[in-house]
Simulated assay, not measured.
Amino acid sequence: MTDPIRLSKRLIELTGCSRREAELYIEGGWVTVDGEVVEQAQFKVADGQVVALLPGATPDAHEPMTLLLNQPAGLDFDAAQRLLSPDSRWPDDRAQVRLLRSHFARLTTTLALQPDASGLLVLTQDWRTLRKLNEDASKLEQEYVVEVSGEMAPNGLERLKRGLGDLPPVKASWQNETHLRFALKNPRPGVIKAFCKAVGLHVKSMKRIRIGGVPIGKVPAGQWRYLGQAERF
Rank of each mutant, 00 (worst) to 15 (best):
L100G: 02
G74I: 08
E21G: 11
F195C: 01
G163E: 10
L121H: 02
N155S: 06
D136A: 05
Q125W: 00
E23C: 04
R208E: 10
L53A: 09
G48K: 05
M65Y: 06
V191S: 14
K197D: 05
T109M: 05
L184Q: 08
P91D: 12
K207P: 03
L180Q: 04
K139T: 15
Q142L: 11
N155V: 10
E231M: 02
Y144V: 11
Q71L: 03
E231N: 07
V122S: 03
E158Y: 02
N134Q: 15
L68Q: 01
A137E: 12
K161Q: 07
A172W: 14
E36S: 05
H179V: 02
V214E: 00
A95I: 12
G74F: 00
R210L: 14
A137W: 01
S85V: 15
F233Y: 09
L54S: 03
M1W: 03
K197Q: 12
R101I: 10
V50Y: 01
A80E: 07
E21P: 02
Q40T: 13
E147Q: 08
R131N: 12
R98M: 14
G222N: 01
N186W: 00
P215W: 02
I211L: 11
L11K: 06
L167H: 07
L107V: 00
L53H: 07
V148C: 11
S18G: 13
R82N: 06
E177A: 15
K218Y: 10
H202D: 02
G217Y: 13
R208T: 03
L67I: 04
Y144E: 00
R106H: 09
P55V: 00
V148A: 07
G163Q: 09
S149R: 12
F195L: 04
W30S: 10
P86F: 11
L180C: 12
R225L: 14
E23H: 11
S18K: 08
A41K: 09
L121I: 02
G200S: 08
I26P: 05
Q40S: 04
G156W: 15
L11T: 02
S85R: 11
L180D: 08
A73N: 05
L164G: 10
V38T: 13
A198T: 14
F104W: 13
K139E: 13
W224T: 08
G35F: 08
A79E: 13
T178N: 04
G217F: 10
M65Q: 12
R94E: 13
T2P: 15
R19D: 10
L120R: 02
E147P: 05
K171F: 15
W224I: 02
K9W: 04
A137I: 07
L99A: 03
